[in-house]
Design a binder for these strands. Structure first.
Length: 234
DNA sequence: TTTCTGATCTTCT
DNA sequence: GAAGATCAGAAAC
């Protein structure tokens, strides 16, 4: 024992998140977020800033029913549904009432890879991201069509995939990650500063000049940069 | 390997 | 009514 314990470390306290998102984000690299049997070591994150200041942030225009959690206490989970089929998970930063968060973009599954793979396979089978969160033990999954299995590096590569691997849905919106809840964040192994890179955020149309995307240089789980492309409807 | 497109639905103006 | 913090598969090269 102890193998995973050493990899995961101690739970992060609330003070860790009581800082600006652009400061918390690079510090989150190498940290571990765990939900049930699955643990993911973060390799790519994005900071989203304050109302009226960061046009790419959900809180830019102020508080709404959807983004209310971002105005809550630090260390809480903000999960939203996007593009009609995907969930994305954030960790709230700064004191209550402020409104900022860090988007979890990608990570490396260091525990529970088979459970994560089964969740990914189930989500890819046509079911939109299916929670199934409560039961931690259901690891039995059917193989993906064609017998191809998802490589470890792709299990949590991208914000929606990471949410699936950790079985995070809107049910978990507002969950406290610094308490005794099912989702926790641990110290993990902090990444040395010379390996941390920053650049423009992926897929955002506004605020693209702000280099608040942070990733571990050369890590295979980091998603490729894709600039925002407006969708055309027929 | 890279580029392009369709699927899907919530949120906000 | 329009846009969106995306992804997977197909087509092109």
């Amino acid at each position: 024992m102890g193998e995973f314990g050493e990899l995961i470390g101690d739970p992060l306290d609330r003070e860790f998140f009581d800082r600006p998102a652009e400061e918390v984000a690079p510090d989150l690299l190498g940290r571990v977020i765990a939900h049930g049997p699955v643990a993911v070591r973060l390799t790519e994150v994005e900071a989203y800033g304050l109302p009226g200041q960061d046009p790419a942030s959900h809180v830019y225009r102020g508080r709404t029913e959807r983004n209310a959690v971002m105005f809550g206490a630090p260390g809480h989970l903000y999960v939203y549904f996007t593009y009609g089929m995907h969930h994305c998970a954030n960790l709230v930063c700064l004191p209550e009432g402020t409104g900022s968060a860090v988007l979890l973009r990608a990570g490396e599954v260091i525990r529970g890879a088979e459970v994560a793979r089964a969740r990914r396979a189930a989500a890819g089978n046509g079911n939109a991201v299916n929670g199934g969160a409560g039961d931690g033990g259901a690891g039995e999954g059917d193989a993906p069509p064609g017998g191809r299995s998802i490589p470890d590096r792709d299990l949590a590569r991208g914000p929606a995939r990471l949410a699936v691997a950790l079985a995070l849905t809107r049910e978990h919106n507002g969950l406290d990650c610094c308490g005794s809840g099912p989702v926790r964040v641990f110290t993990g192994e902090p990444v040395s500063p010379e390996l941390i890179r920053s650049g423009p955020r992926v897929g955002v149309s506004a605020g693209r000049e702000i280099p608040w995307r942070f990733w571990v240089d050369g890590h295979p789980t980091v998603s490729p940069y894709r600039p925002h492309v407006p969708r055309q409807r027929t």
